[in-house]
């Protein structure tokens, strides 16, 4: 087990390194440069722009730029933001990580709390009213674009009812609407997936065997079906985790959430290279780690899985 983890960690390092190269080159190959975006519409001469470019090291050959950046990043120095003229990238990003992390954590927990029981219950009571109702809801929630859902929630709960704040983080109430908007899609996908996995498992021979042995139906579901359906569900949860950043970007824009997703989008538009590189690199590291954790968690869920 330990050697497996070490091996995986080593592989992860290589993945992260490759990702860093890809991010760096795609960012720098994209047309448009930060200084033009920042000053292009203003009355600034070409020499002045060149000076500013030189100040940020943007006049160096790209390979050199990469090496300098990678070397510094390895030591934990991600440089300074161009668009925020000199604010340290680490400060910018770290300040927002808790906001995004908490929001997504709540949304994820909310989705799981709703989805897994709902999925199990609709599989156990297939074709019941509850089953149809959850399926209906799930399809509805899956097809709603989350920015639209967010805006509608704002109109209902903030404009009409006046219960909840409309932007940023002001109190715990601020979490409610973005959380629901983020959770809706995941809850829907997880419900449907849990239901179908549960139904699949129920058709297996071992379930028939258990039932014919006279095991109580409650126990058949609890001890056999759920445990076996759990692995693909956990895989899906880990997989959905990778989508956090893409989902959170839209929601953070709608709710003016001071999070990493919004910073990422704004920085891409501004070609604030160092910020984009730092965020994507951190995101890559998180995804790699989550995948690792998912793989390891299999051993706890299913004793048949073990790594040597």
């Amino acid at each position: 087990m330990r050697s497996y983890i070490i091996k995986r960690l080593f592989q992860s390092l290589i993945v992260v390194w490759l990702v860093s190269i890809v991010i760096f080159t795609t960012m720098h190959l994209t047309p448009g440069d930060p200084v033009t975006i920042l000053l292009g519409q203003r009355d600034v001469s070409a020499e002045q722009m060149d000076k500013i470019r030189a100040k940020w090291g943007l006049d160096q050959p790209i390979v050199k730029q990469y090496l300098v950046w990678a070397g510094n990043a390895f030591q934990g120095d991600f440089g300074k933001s161009i668009a925020y003229n000199g604010v340290s990238v680490i400060d910018l990003v770290l300040h927002r990580v808790p906001n995004t992390a908490l929001l997504n954590l709540y949304a994820f927990v909310l989705a799981i709390i709703i989805a897994i029981p709902a999925g199990i219950f609709s599989a156990v009571r297939q074709y019941s009213f509850f089953d149809y109702a959850t399926s209906g809801f799930a399809i509805f929630a899956m097809s709603l674009p989350n920015f639209w859902l967010g805006l509608m929630l704002l109109i209902v709960f903030s404009v009409w009812l006046g219960w909840l704040p409309t932007f940023g983080i002001q109190s715990w109430k601020s979490y409610i609407l973005p959380c629901i908007s983020l959770a809706a899609m995941n809850a829907a996908i997880l419900t449907r997936f849990t239901r179908s996995k549960m139904l699949e498992e129920q058709k297996q021979d071992y379930v028939k065997t258990a039932r014919s042995k006279g095991v109580m139906e409650k126990n058949v579901i609890r001890k056999h079906v759920i445990r076996n359906a759990a692995i693909p569900i956990v895989t899906l949860i880990g997989y959905r985790f990778a989508y956090i950043l893409s989902g959170t970007v839209v929601i953070e824009m709608v709710f003016a959430w001071p999070g990493v997703g919004r910073l990422l989008v704004e920085s891409i538009f501004r070609r604030d290279y160092l910020v984009v590189q730092a965020i994507t690199l951190v995101a890559a590291i998180i995804i790699v780690v989550v995948n690792l954790i998912t793989d390891i968690s299999y051993t706890f869920i299913d004793p048949r899985v073990h790594y040597d």
């Binding site: 805006l151 404009v159 704040p165 409309t166 932007f167 824009m253 709608v254 709710f255 003016a256």
Partner: peptide, 18 residues
């Protein structure tokens, strides 16, 4: 406070949040 989404700005104004 930065509010990037224009509709959300209008909503915030109407609800007295800004």
């Amino acid at each position: 406070v930065p509010i990037p989404e224009p509709s959300a700005t209008a909503i915030s104004l109407e609800t007295g949040n800004i």
